[in-house]
């Protein structure tokens, strides 16, 4: 009996000792460029890339270079870089998934140089999340006056899409982008009709967008979104868009008072209820 307890204790001691030897053996070191912006990116990159007893990653936010130290018998550079890309950071071997990149906090949205921006017409179903910055760059060359408001409308759609997914975090991020877009609009470059409407809705639009940007509560965001959508409707009506916009209505929201929203797709995807009642609603008007 005593022997049993002794063996037991020894055994337990042996088990715990295994974990105290945390060194990286057979270590190889490499330096590699990883895209990112701020200190938040640094902690994200290092957390994703490092693996206990296997790899350590240290990233410098000014040089954008990371030093990798890893056990060559357990892993390789590609495995580490893949983990970092999956966390949202492009590098020379891997591009981050588009939706993961889009969900990064605004300060982390680095310029995706490695990702080619050639729009290939072959990929009919390719979905790309553009940061509003690159969109505005593309639009600045266009001569059509209504392009100014495109950025505002597109970022509104991103907020709407985030609310459809009931993703408070994402809608907050997209609302920040919307605020920026609103502030970047130069009134002098708008058409006469747009100008009048813009003067009317601009302040409210900015206020509502800011409210959503400042809230992490999806319910509060949605309440404000209802007001925001009314502003957007006026704006969209006054501006000529190259693709139709659907003005849709959910009768149940807000205790049956109902609410509207704008969408690029005719299929009803409800931003006020998300997956709980995705298809509730109907198209009231088509703007084109």
């Amino acid at each position: 009996m005593k022997l049993v307890s002794k063996t037991l204790l020894l055994f337990v001691a042996l088990l715990s000792s295994k974990n105290t030897l945390a060194q990286i053996k057979n270590s190889k070191t490499e330096t590699v460029k990883i895209y990112g912006n701020c200190s938040m990116c640094k902690s994200r990159i290092e957390k994703a890339g490092s693996l206990k007893n296997t790899a350590t990653v240290i990233w410098d936010k000014d040089s954008k270079k990371a030093s990798l130290r890893y056990d060559g018998s357990k892993t390789n550079r590609d495995e580490i870089l893949k983990r970092i890309a999956l966390a949202g950071h492009d590098n020379e071997k891997f591009l981050a998934p588009d939706d993961v990149y889009a969900q990064l906090p605004e300060c982390c949205l680095y310029n995706r140089e490695l990702k080619l921006t050639s729009k290939s017409n072959v990929a009919a179903g390719v979905r790309r999340e553009h940061s509003s910055q690159s969109e505005m760059k593309q639009n600045s060359q266009a001569t059509i006056k209504s392009q100014q408001l495109n950025a505002v409308i597109e970022s509104y759609f991103s907020v709407k899409d985030a609310l459809v997914k009931s993703d408070a975090n994402a809608s907050m991020q997209k609302a920040i982008v919307l605020v920026k877009a609103i502030r970047a609009v130069e009134m002098t470059k708008l058409s006469a009709e747009e100008h009048t409407t813009w003067m009317k809705v601009r302040n409210e639009l900015e206020q509502n967008a800011q409210r959503i940007a400042g809230s992490k509560d999806v319910a509060k965001q949605r309440t404000t979104f209802a007001l925001l959508s009314e502003n957007m409707y006026d704006l969209a009506k006054s501006s000529k868009q190259d693709k139709p916009i659907y003005y849709q209505h959910c009768p149940m929201y807000n205790n049956g008072k109902g609410a509207h929203w704008l969408s690029k797709e005719s299929a009803v995807k409800n931003p006020y209820y998300g997956s709980k009642m995705m298809t509730c609603g109907s198209t009231k008007e088509t703007l084109d």
């Binding site: 997914k165 149940m252 929201y253 205790n255 049956g256 995807k269 997956s275 709980k276 009642m277 298809t279």
Partner: peptide, 27 residues
């Protein structure tokens, strides 16, 4: 966990025949 928002609306999603239809619930 989806929050129970019974106060907000009277329609009960629990009986919606589409609640298990992945193609109707998202894009």
């Amino acid at each position: 966990k989806p929050k129970s928002n019974h106060g907000e609306h009277s329609m009960n999603m629990d009986n919606d025949p589409n609640r298990y239809n992945a193609n109707a619930l998202g894009n």
